[in-house]
């Protein structure tokens, strides 16, 4: 039994013993309209924005997520789509998150994964941008952003791997471009002295970063993530076929 498996089984057995009815994984196709409210993602999800740290310069932009029909030509299926609200040429952009709640407590600080398919990303530089993707060890209890984030820029499909500590961003890796339809899986393998962040694209390693810094994060859970800048265009960032949970 390896380290990740040991953590998984310890948590699973603890859950049984304590009687807590929480899940250690979630699968969501992200193509089902919320039966409670058509503006929702389904009752297993919570979404919101985190204001950035430091002074806020106005105007600002915020993010929202919806289950709507994909704008990808020829697709026509429902998906999770990010949208920007706010001004053209904002001075501050708030960070949006969409977090699966059923695994939140179980996954906190554990070795964890998140996987989703980026079905469509498009935009034109200077005419509005959405930067969206996956996060692990995202700690939504805090005022500010604390997470490892893998995101794709709608201007050019380039990607960044970033660690946020109280909204202070440190770029860990970068590359690109990605392509529509790519399946991304991000994992955080937690060890006592390091955290190995790995991003797979279509089942092959895209990047892996071993974080041994004192700022490494090991107390959050998986989440979707986005921010953006309004412009005169209509950037798109659409996702489908989501899964997340404990393990790799």
């Amino acid at each position: 039994m390896n380290f990740a498996e040991e953590i998984y089984y310890r948590r699973y057995l603890n859950d049984i013993i304590s009687g807590i009815s929480l899940d250690s994984s979630i699968i969501d196709p992200l193509n089902i309209v919320d039966t409670n409210n058509s503006n929702g993602l389904g009752y297993k999800w919570i979404q919101g924005n985190k204001p950035p740290g430091g002074a806020i310069n106005f105007p600002v932009d915020t993010m929202t997520a919806s289950i709507i029909t994909s704008t990808k030509p020829g697709d026509g299926q429902l998906c999770l789509s990010w949208k920007i609200s706010g001004a053209v040429n904002p001075q501050t952009d708030w960070r949006g998150f969409a977090l699966p709640l059923n695994i939140y407590t179980v996954c906190l600080g554990q070795t964890q994964y998140i996987q989703c398919t980026n079905i469509y990303t498009i935009g034109t530089a200077g005419q509005g941008t959405i930067v969206a993707g996956l996060a692990v060890q995202f700690y939504a209890a805090a005022q500010k952003v604390n997470a490892y984030v893998f995101n794709i820029n709608s201007d050019n499909h380039n990607w960044l791997l970033i660690r946020y500590n109280d909204d202070v961003a440190v770029t860990l890796a970068s590359g690109g471009p990605t392509a529509d339809g790519d399946i991304f899986r991000m994992t955080s393998q937690v060890f006592p002295s390091q955290n190995i962040i790995t991003v797979n694209k279509n089942n092959s390693i895209l990047t892996s970063y071993t974080d041994t810094s004192v700022s490494r994060l090991n107390y959050g859970s998986p989440s979707l993530w986005a921010y953006g800048f309004s412009g005169n265009g209509s950037p798109k960032h659409e996702w489908r076929t989501f899964s997340a949970g404990i393990g790799l």
């Binding site: 600002v60 993010m63 706010g86 708030w94 998150f97 700690y139 209890a141 500010k144």
Partner: peptide, 28 residues
């Protein structure tokens, strides 16, 4: 975990405003 937090039993966030107004205030 984080001195800016409420504890691991909590999640906090802000709901985006309904309209596209530029200058908004927030709370945390």
């Amino acid at each position: 975990n984080n001195s800016n937090g409420l504890g691991s039993n909590w999640i906090q966030g802000t709901v985006a405003p309904n309209s596209a107004n530029n200058n908004v205030n927030g709370a945390a």
